[in-house]
Write a protein that binds this DNA or RNA. Structure first.
Length: 425
RNA sequence: GGAGAGAUGGCCGAGUGGUCGAAGGCGCUCCCCUGCUAAGGGAGUAUAGGCUCAAAAGGCUUAUCGAGGGUUCGAAUCCCUCUCUCUCCGCCA
């Protein structure tokens, strides 16, 4: 949520910056709502003040055993009007809140202008795509050749966009998650956490907009619970409705969890393989920081995610999402894209965002400064990394002509020293 | 699933219809005292918002004692619903 004060003081500038990201702010609607709110609120509070003053007098008179019926009649005379005004005020405030809750975050000044993913500038490129002297398989064929990737069985159980992993591939999937978690906790200072795979509607609204993105989530029938599309949902909400002290900051959490997405808007997209699934694993990094540190923390967190790809010796590039390609809550996002030989393309494997106070304001997540003032926190998160897509990248980048797949050196300790996965008997 | 208890400020904890935004304690901030990390004294210390002001300061004001409704001139206090926590029993991984 944006700071309403900002809209009040500089509506035109806000509208202009939102236009950069393709969002049309209805400025006239805001001004009308504000005018209404102001009038109704002033009137209501005036009447409330009068009632409070009279009630106080009544109390004092009764204490002295005097007759207060005249004052009581006076309060009663305005009771109905006050009730109506209070109702009106609640109503206009709710409409104002609904208006605010669906406005996306403002891009940072450093975010480049652009309309789509095609306009995302590359920040850096690390590693050289390997040259193959045989016809490369994509991960579906490479996985099938190993007998470790089975979409037919998954389809039989749950339908499209699910997968079953077996044998060495399933173990590799587990090894990837273990390696990521260990790296972030022992080398990058994150605290490992385990959290619910379902969150309340309030928590979903704390990190994003439920009104806007309801369709992307799986809802639990008959309950106010949603399957998490990322561990960002539960973990960022750790600090909701809380006032931390500056001494506790920054908080750094790493969480390995499954993620559930309905993929409602992506029919026909990435239908092959496990690039886009209803369920996938991810190791999520979350940082809760003070405002002055969020820029640096965002860079740091992005580097932490990149470290995993460097360890696994997978070629990647990092791009800055342009204004037109950013997510709803983000003020700035870096996407990390891994090289997939099967597609001859870089594909997203991590998205690292700085939300500044946008989520904190929705969650009422605050901290007390050294001066004793309470301020909104800044939140940052990123995938470190998506486990399923990392598996895809390894199957494709580490495949051999004989159908076996080499195990990256960094993962071998997690695979009992195994150096390659060979086709199952 | 059954029975009971509870939810108050950063924390602990008083408060069963009026002058209570809320005693007291802890913590924190500032000052004083004290020749060193201890102790003592004093002052301050909830949050969000509105109006006013060129702005800041200030002034006036509203709401908030788990959430939402209700009763009342007036609710932390009474009533209803919900959520959560704890204890005991049952069941269960």
């Amino acid at each position: 949520m944006l700071d309403i004060q900002l809209l009040r003081s500089d509506l035109a500038a806000v509208a202009k910056r939102l236009a950069d990201r393709g969002f049309t702010l209805d400025a006239a609607a805001f001004e009308a709502l504000e005018a209404e709110r102001k009038k109704v609120q002033t009137d209501t509070q005036e009447l409330q003040a009068k009632r409070n003053a009279l009630s106080k007098q009544i109390g004092q008179m009764k204490a002295k055993k005097e007759d207060a019926s005249a004052l009581m009649a006076e309060v009663n005379a305005q009771a109905e009007q006050l009730k109506a005004l209070e109702q009106q005020l609640a109503d206009v405030q709710q409409r104002l809140n609904e208006y605010l809750m669906v406005i996306p975050n403002l891009p940072q000044a450093s975010v480049p202008f652009g309309k789509s993913a095609d306009d995302n500038p590359e920040v850096r490129r690390v590693g050289e795509p390997r040259q193959f002297d045989f016809t490369v398989k994509d991960h579906v064929d490479a996985g099938a050749a190993l007998g470790g990737l089975d979409f037919d069985t998954a389809g039989k159980i749950a339908g499209a966009r699910f997968s079953v992993l077996k044998g060495g591939v399933a173990r590799l999937h587990r090894a990837i998650a273990q390696c990521m978690l260990d790296t972030h906790t022992s080398e990058h200072g994150y605290t490992e956490v385990y959290a619910p795979y379902m969150v309340s509607g309030d928590c979903a609204n704390g990190v994003s907009s439920l009104a806007k993105f309801k369709e992307d989530l799986f809802k639990i029938e008959g309950r106010d619970l949603y399957l998490i599309p990322t561990a960002e949902y539960p973990v960022t909400n750790f600090v909701r409705n809380q006032i931390l002290t500056f001494k506790e900051l920054p908080l750094k959490f790493a969480c390995h969890s499954p993620c559930f997405r309905s993929e409602a808007g992506s029919y026909g997209k990435d239908t092959r393989g496990m690039i886009r699934q209803h369920q996938f694993d991810k190791v999520e990094l979350v940082q809760i920081v003070t405002p002055e540190n969020s820029g640096a923390a965002h860079e740091e967190l992005t580097a932490h995610a990149e470290t995993i790809l460097k360890k696994l010796e997978l070629p990647f590039r990092t791009v800055t999402l342009c204004t037109g390609d950013m997510g709803f809550s983000s003020a700035k996002t870096y996407d990390i894209e891994v090289w997939l030989p099967g597609q001859s393309a870089y594909r997203e494997i991590s998205s690292c965002s700085n939300f500044e106070a946008f989520q904190a304001r929705r969650m009422q997540a605050r901290y007390r400064t050294a001066q004793g003032k309470t301020e909104l926190l800044h939140t940052i998160n990123g995938s470190g990394l998506a486990v399923g897509r990392t598996l895809v990248a390894i199957l494709e980048n580490y495949q051999n002509a004989d159908g076996s797949v080499a195990v990256p050196a960094a993962l071998q300790p997690y695979m009992g020293g195994l150096k390659a996965i060979v086709p199952m008997a």
